[in-house]
Nucleic acid binder design. Sequence first.
RNA 1: GGUCCCUUCGUCUAGUGGCCUAGGACGCUGCCCUUUCACGGCGGAAACACGGGUUCGAGUCCCGUAGGGAUCACCA
Length: 470
Amino acid sequence: MQKDMPKVITRFAPSPTGFLHIGGARTALYNWLYARRHNGQFLLRIEDTDRKRSTDEAVAAILAGMSWLGLDCDGEAVSQYAQAERHKEVALKLLADGKAYRCYATSEELAELRSKARDEGKPFLGDVWRDKEPDAETAKRPYAIRIKMPREGEVTINDEVQGNVTVQNKELDDMILLRSDGTPTYMLAVVVDDHDMGVTHVIRGDDHLNNAFRQYQVYAAMGWSVPVFAHIPLIHGPDGKKLSKRHGALGVEEYAEMGFVPEAMRNYLLRLGWSHGDDEIISTQQAIEWFNLENVGRGPARFDFDKLDNLNAHYMRTMNSETILSLVKNELEIYTGDKLAEIEIQRLLAAMPSIAERAKRLPDVVEAASLYCNTRPLKLTEKASATLSGNGPMLVELAEKLLSVSSWKSDQIKEAIISYATAKELKLGKVMQPIRAALTGGLPSGDLTDLLEILGQQESYDRLLDQANT
RNA sequence: GGUCCCUUCGUCUAGUGGCCUAGGACGCUGCCCUUUCACGGCGGAAACACGGGUUCGAGUCCCGUAGGGAUCACCA
C-alpha cells in the first residue's frame, strides 16, 4: 500500500426490514474481509429511512447475525434516519444551486406517465416539472425535490468486479432526493452518508449497479469524490431462481439453528463467488491475507447445501472436544431430557473426536452423543433389532465374559471378545455386530472396543443384558 | 418493453492466446482400508451455450444469436 493512499473504509448497509439473509451475509463478509485485508475500517450503517418497514427486531437480527458470523464492525452501528437533517440540507443546497428542482406531480400523474413511457419503450425520466414554474395555486401544494440529471454525455464506472460499465446520461431519471413530506430518499441518503463516513469502497450487491450511475450524479453535483465501486453478483437458490423469502432465503440464525458453525459458513460464503486458485479450505486468517476484488466472479452463484455440509463436517472435525460439547450441550440435554452428569461429560469428551468425525451438522453430534448418556434402555432401529434377533443367549455370555475383564481398557476388552469368538468358533463380525447393536441401538459409532471402554464396564454390561431377551 | 450485466462438468470454480488430451472441490460412482458408520487413500463418469470472425494458433480477443439475471417507486 502506498503511504499517501487514503485508508480503506468499507461499510455494510442493510435495511432493517427482515433478517440478515445469506446474500447480505456474504456482502458483509466481503466488506469486512476487504477492510481487514487493508488495515482499514469496516462500518455498519442501518438504512432505516423507510420508517414504515424498518423494525427494531430486524436491527437486532442483523446485529445478531453479524456477531454469530464473527464480523465485528468498527464503531457503533449508524442509523441513517438519524442523519435526516443532514440529508435534507444537501437536498436544499442542490436546490439552491439549481442542480435540483421542485416537482409538484402527484403519484397518480407519475404512474400514468410511467406506464406510457414503458409502452413507448422509452425510459421514464420523471421530469415533468424540470423546466416549469408552478402557478400561484400549484405553488401551495407539497412538492418533492428532484435532481436535475445531465441529458448529454455518458458516465463510465470502473467497477472492481464488473469492469468498465458505461451508461448514457439521457437514460437517467430525475430521481427524488427529498420526498414531499420532507424526508430524504435512499438515493440521497446513501451518497451523503457514504461521503460523510469517508467510505472509500462501496462493495454491495449487483442489484445496485444501475443505481451507481444515478448516485454518481449526486457526487458530481456536490463536487465530492466518488468511491470505488464493486458490485458482487447475487446468490441464487439451488434451482437457479433468485432467492426470495419464500424461496430458500434464510436468515443466518436459521443456519445456526440447522447446526452449521460460523467457521464453515464463512468459508462457504467466501468461496461462493470468490476463489484463490484451487484452494477450498480457507481459514479466516488466510482469507484476510488473500481476499481481493479481482477474483470475485461475475456471474450469480447457486447456493448448495451439500458443499456447506462438507465444509461444516470439516470444521467440526478440527474443533476440540470441549468446544463441540459446549456447542451441543443445551440441545443434548433437551434431547435426553436430563442435565449432563459428570460421568457423561467425561464419556462425551473422550468420545467427541469419534463423534465429530461422523457428523455433518451439530444435530448429528447431539444424536450420536446421546449414546454416551444414561438413556437405557436404548431404542433400537429396525436394523439393530434384526441384528440382535436370536442372539440373546450370546449377549448374556458376552456380558459375563466382559464383566470378568480385570483392566477395562480397549485392548483388554478386544482380547476378551476375540477369545470368546475363538472359543465359540465364530467369526469376529458375528460377535461384534450384536454387541454394537446392543450398545448403540443402531446409531453410528466408532471403534467398538473404544466405545465399550468409554461407556464403562457396568454400563456396557447393563446395555448388553437389556437386549438379552430379544 | 428500455437500459445494464452474466454464460467452463449437476453445483462452486481454475483458466488473462500456445503449459488444455480443460485442472480442483462438492455431489454421484468403482476399488482399497475396516467389526458397523465415517474418515482416509487410489480410480471413474461429468463442462468451454450456439454461430461467425481475428490469429500460425481461441475456453481465453471481437461481433451476432440464444438463454439467464438485475433494474426501471415520494422501497432500500
